[in-house]
């Protein structure tokens, strides 16, 4: 087997290769963070404080009213659970990778990725994991369990599966959104405030997007896919999800993946390296 064939075998022939890379980097990232176990306590504290604040806000709102835009307190608790859980996924796996990519583009160290015999987009997307941030995934899941227990009748297996599917679609869309924005770093080099911008906008997902005025609701659906990432999974849990919405979510996720791939390649062509 010549070197070219070997390269092909590495790149294209094995569809599971991105998943293996993902698992490998996850293990390295986990081992790295396991050195700093005290950070788990700090993260746990921060997550609980944030949860307490969120519950206090819900308490304040429902001290004044019995429903908000047609959502009851338990239903909004479910929205909050999805919001915390998805926030945990973003901070564990998506945002750290994108921030590293930004630094690499600015410093020219992206060269080291581009010279490796793997797909560059896969590589930049799976390199970093902050496992302690995963505490929010656990906290979100617990809030969800409490919320579902409060909902009349709980949920069946079918609803559970649809919920998991919408969560996955949501995570894919948020990943695409982050990568699209980060790819603009190939043109605009200083993007330090990007995570502030995203965190600010992400907070809007704490409430169902249906309460926002029309222009904002549309922006939070198609411009920043927070509706798909948080509200749609919560709709699945609270018997609000229609087949049309589900199909739209799947189609939009697929379209966004293609767009992101195209834009990433366009950006790469614009990358000139720094010192190399």
């Amino acid at each position: 087997m010549g070197p070219t064939q070997g390269r092909d075998a590495l790149r294209g022939r094995d569809p599971l290769r991105p998943i293996r890379l993902f698992a490998l980097f996850f293990r390295v990232g986990a081992l790295n963070e396991l050195q700093y176990r005290a950070n788990l306590a700090v993260q746990l504290f921060e997550s609980l404080l944030a949860l307490g604040t969120g519950l206090a806000v819900l308490g304040l709102v429902f001290g004044q009213t019995t429903n908000l835009g047609g959502w009851s307190q338990s239903e909004l608790l479910a929205v909050m659970g999805v919001h915390i859980l998805m926030g945990g996924v973003i901070k564990t796996a998506i945002q750290p990778n994108m921030e590293r990519l930004m630094t690499d583009v600015r410093q020219g160290t992206l060269d080291f990725i581009l010279t490796k015999p793997e797909d560059a987009q896969v590589m930049v997307s799976v390199r970093e994991f902050r496992i302690w941030q995963g505490v929010d995934i656990g906290v979100g899941a617990i809030v969800l369990v409490v919320a579902v227990a409060q909902l009349r009748g709980g949920i069946g297996v079918g609803v559970g599966l649809i919920f998991a599917g919408t969560l996955l679609l949501g995570a894919v869309m948020i990943y695409c959104f982050w990568l699209l924005l980060t790819t603009t770093a190939f043109w605009i080099v200083k993007m330090d405030e990007l995570h502030e911008l995203f965190e600010g906008i992400y907070q809007s997902g704490r409430w169902p997007v249906t309460i926002y005025p029309g222009w904002l609701r549309i922006s939070l659906t198609f411009l920043v896919p927070i509706a798909f990432a948080v509200t749609v999974p919560a709709e699945a849990l609270t018997s609000r999800l229609t087949v049309e919405t589900l199909a739209l979510a799947a189609a939009f996720a697929f379209g966004l993946l293609l767009l992101t791939r195209w834009f990433w390649r366009l950006g790469l062509r614009n990358y000139s390296g720094a010192s190399a």
């Binding site: 200083k190 330090d192 405030e193 911008l197 600010g200 906008i201 907070q203 309460i211």
Partner: peptide
């Protein structure tokens, strides 16, 4: 650009409270 990103992120917070 960086300052505007920062400000738009910041404006999101009161807009959310306001709508709720």
């Amino acid at each position: 650009v960086s300052n505007y990103f920062y400000m738009i992120g910041m404006v999101a917070e009161p807009v959310i409270y306001l709508v709720v």
